[in-house]
């Protein structure tokens, strides 16, 4: 036996490819749903934190700190295996999306907060002096400027969410990793795992490259 046949076995890869692509589809579904929910949640948290009374601000602060500290795998297992004890039974898909979204929202909120804080105070004052409501100040003045600042870290966060979808395999979600391990067991050959790894890299490498370029671009724009 040689290395090539073990790790890059063509026939095995071909046979497992449909299964891997099915897994990729599930991975993308979990990832994209979580990214969108995390974005909405994060935007809501960051804007509320800006305008809400002190009490609500404190709660949001606590939320963000908790969900940035808890290991995602622990959270996922709590959601999937512990919540049923209080009558909340989520499917593997919903468990994965819930855990990923809760954490992503916390990170996204911090990213938006940093973006909003980077907008000069004068922009808020000019908006207030014109009589713009808080909502219009955000929508017309602050967020369009903050978006430039937050795009690189947001893309980074998307990469992290997509990577972390692999954890969904522990709650029996047939995502890319799970499909790969099953195919590996079936064919008694690790090639499907290598195939899955390559698919992850092919999916995320372009995003990693984009973040690098965006960061360079924006840091040049600032100076």
């Amino acid at each position: 036996m040689n290395l090539l046949n073990t790790f890059f076995n063509g026939p095995v890869l071909l046979a497992s490819l449909p299964q891997l692509l099915q897994g990729l589809l599930v991975t993308l579904q979990i990832g994209i749903t979580s990214i969108i929910c995390g974005l909405i949640g994060g935007l809501f948290l960051s804007v509320t934190r800006l305008y809400a009374p002190g009490f609500a601000r404190g709660l949001i602060r606590v939320y963000i700190d908790i969900f940035r500290s808890i290991p995602l795998l622990v959270l996922l297992i709590v959601v999937y295996y512990a919540l049923p004890f209080v009558g909340i039974r989520l499917s593997p898909f919903l468990s994965a999306v819930t855990a990923l979204s809760l954490v992503s929202a916390a990170y996204t909120a911090e990213i938006f907060r940093a973006g909003i804080e980077a907008i000069p105070k004068g922009q808020f004052e000019a908006s207030a002096a014109l009589g713009l409501s808080n909502r219009h100040t955000m929508v017309d003045v602050v967020l369009p400027q903050a978006i430039r600042i937050v795009i690189p870290p947001l893309t980074n966060n998307c990469i992290n969410v997509l990577k972390d979808t692999a954890l969904a395999s522990v709650v029996a979600m047939p995502d890319l990793l799970k499909q790969a391990t099953q195919a590996q067991a079936l064919s008694a050959n690790p090639t499907p795992l290598i195939g899955a790894a390559l698919i992850y890299v092919a999916l995320l490498w372009p995003m990693v490259a984009i973040v690098g370029r965006l960061e360079k671009h924006f840091s040049r724009g600032r100076s």
Partner: peptide, 29 residues
């Protein structure tokens, strides 16, 4: 809405054209 203000540092909205800067408040307020 009745009290306009002009700042030392202008505080124009940098992401909007000049004419949009002037249009924004009448439209929104």
């Amino acid at each position: 809405a009745e009290v306009g203000m002009v700042f030392q540092s202008f505080n124009l909205f940098p992401h909007m054209s000049v004419v949009r800067n002037v249009m924004l408040a009448p439209m929104r307020v």
